[in-house]
């Protein structure tokens, strides 16, 4: 590298360009592809290479987006309502599952004999596809809010329960030994060692469970209601409005992204001591 003292303005400019080229952030590449794809899509529809009804072009989607925010869909149901309905259902089912599963999981995990006795039940209950329970839940509780919240809670419950059990069992024995040698009682060890030691894994389970809640809610909103984002995209199909379905999917992506980020943020606030907050994929 030449020293900066003899650099002419032109060479300094080139150097700066080089440096900026090296620091193009990764998301810029991604954004570039997205823009190119959107443009290609628009172009292809313009030239009638692909069907505008099946693949409504980005410009049309943008107008629909605006219209949805202003007037909502179907008539009389605002986008606001859809968002609130979906969020509220997720929140109810998810928090019920967490509130039940975390204490239970901690207890089961700390009681080895009990853990062995219930392990097959948990394994099987986890394997039961949550959505296969939909007809049964409908037969039991009817097509209503309770059924939807119940299914979300069911799906999340077993994931959180398993993670809480594994979390307790995964707390390193050396922490227990250290606490014992410092004279802590069994109760103190549970509250001050087992509990904080298992929080990171419990949070990992909560992240996976959020993905599950999201999967279930979209499916259960497709029947028996016109409120909620799942209902929005299904209703749009009944009216042959592919554009509305697609915008609805964008809404879903946004809400999913925001929820996942909120949870990650919460984790960083609550567990500042955790070394690597690795992203667990759904």
């Amino acid at each position: 590298m030449p020293s900066s003292s003899d650099a002419t303005p032109r060479r300094a400019w080139i150097r700066r360009l080089r440096r900026t080229r090296l620091t193009i952030p990764d998301w810029a590449y991604g954004l570039l592809t997205v823009l190119v794809l959107l443009w290609l899509w628009e172009y292809a529809v313009d030239h009638a290479w692909i069907n505008a009804y099946r693949f409504p072009p980005p410009s049309k989607l943008a107008r629909t987006f605006e219209a949805l925010l202003e007037r909502g869909f179907p008539r009389g149901v605002t986008t606001d309502t859809h968002f609130k309905a979906t969020l509220w259902r997720i929140l109810k089912g998810y928090s019920v599952a967490a509130v039940c599963a975390i204490p239970l999981g901690l207890f089961v995990g700390a009681t080895p004999l009990l853990e062995r006795a219930v392990a097959p039940i948990i394994t099987f209950a986890r394997s039961v596809a949550t959505l296969s329970l939909l007809p049964l839940a409908v037969a039991w509780f009817g097509v209503g809010e309770f059924t939807r919240v119940f299914l979300i809670a069911y799906g999340c419950f077993w994931i959180i329960l398993t993670s809480a059990i594994n979390a307790v069992q995964g707390v390193s024995k050396q922490y227990v030994f250290a606490a014992q040698s410092l004279g802590a009682s069994r109760r103190q060890i549970f509250m001050q060692v087992m509990l904080p030691g298992s929080l990171p894994r419990i949070f990992a389970g909560l992240r996976v469970a959020l993905g599950m809640a999201f999967l279930v809610i979209i499916a259960v909103e497709m029947i028996g209601t016109i409120e909620g984002l799942g209902a929005l995209i299904m209703e749009a199909r009944n009216f042959y409005r592919t554009d509305v379905t697609m915008v609805g999917m964008i809404f879903i992506a946004i809400i999913g992204f925001v929820l996942a980020r909120t949870l990650a943020w919460l984790e960083r606030i609550l567990l500042p001591w955790v070394t690597d907050l690795e992203e667990v994929q759904r």
Binding site: Y175, A178, P196, W273
Partner: peptide, 27 residues
Amino acid sequence: PGPDRGMVFQHAALFPWLTAIQNIEFG
């Protein structure tokens, strides 16, 4: 095991969720 015998382990075994001073105060 009891507080009359202090133990130091090979891999410190500090509680990662406590700060340095909180670790010292644990006992």
